[in-house]
């Protein structure tokens, strides 16, 4: 048995135990550990954000690339949110980011998420699996028609779509359970192995 002597392993063990204690009862130790880790995570975001600003804006500016002034100004405009009189100005850079994000996702979605997915349904209907793939996609799409009442053919198709979705949700449920279990196994391997040295 070889207990760890590393500071970060000990710290991590104390954090892990503190957070696990929460499921048995909310307690002071848990609250402190939670605050610690949220604070550290936020600090980490600041540090890495600053790294990007330094590498992509400040250094190029020092090298004479004047155009980066524009995104720097846009970035600084975000902080007007904290001043009563000017807070609306922060909407300009936010709008810039949201517009950019919307444009990028719109141009990608049509091809990758709609056309490619429909195209992948163009299969020869010579096996039950292929038929199920086409029928399932159709039925689920029909479930999400909101301006058509679900009766008659649409109703039957929507019910079938709901059943397909339940199978999906079951699969997602099952695989999420697997994921959470893996994570917990990882935590126990850490506690029993890296920290206490009981596991090989």
């Amino acid at each position: 048995m070889n207990m760890s002597t590393s500071v970060s392993v000990w710290l991590a063990a104390l954090v892990t135990i503190g957070l696990i204690s929460f499921v048995f009862k909310e307690n002071f130790y848990y609250r402190i550990v939670e605050s610690l880790y949220v604070g550290v995570s936020a600090g980490h975001a600041i540090v890495l954000g600053w790294g990007n600003i330094r590498n992509l804006a400040i250094r190029p500016l020092g090298e004479g690339n004047v155009a980066v002034i524009i995104p720097i100004i846009l970035g600084l405009m975000l902080f007007t949110r904290y001043f009563e009189k000017w807070h609306r100005v922060s909407r300009i850079p936010t709008g810039f980011l949201m517009g950019l994000g919307a444009g990028l996702s719109m141009r990608g979605i049509v091809g990758s998420q709609i056309i490619e997915q429909i195209k992948a349904c163009y299969v020869s209907l010579n096996s039950i699996n292929n038929i199920l793939i086409v029928v399932g996609t159709f039925a689920v799409l029909s479930y999400f028609f909101f301006t058509v009442e679900h009766d008659g053919f649409v109703g039957k198709s929507a019910t079938l779509g709901r059943w397909f979705m339940m199978l999906c949700f079951g699969a997602a449920y099952g695989s999420t359970v697997t994921g959470r279990i893996s994570l917990f196994v990882g935590r126990l391997q850490f506690l029993l192995g890296d920290w206490l040295g009981i596991l090989q």
Partner: peptide, 29 residues
């Protein structure tokens, strides 16, 4: 969306189990 389809680079993923069911359509296509 940004690389695999428009640039034609093959993509593989190492992914948490919780997302396996979600990404099945991308595997089949």
């Amino acid at each position: 969306r940004q690389v695999g389809d428009p640039m034609g680079v093959p993509i593989a993923t190492i992914v948490i189990a919780g997302l396996v069911a979600d990404y099945a359509p991308y595997i089949q296509s």
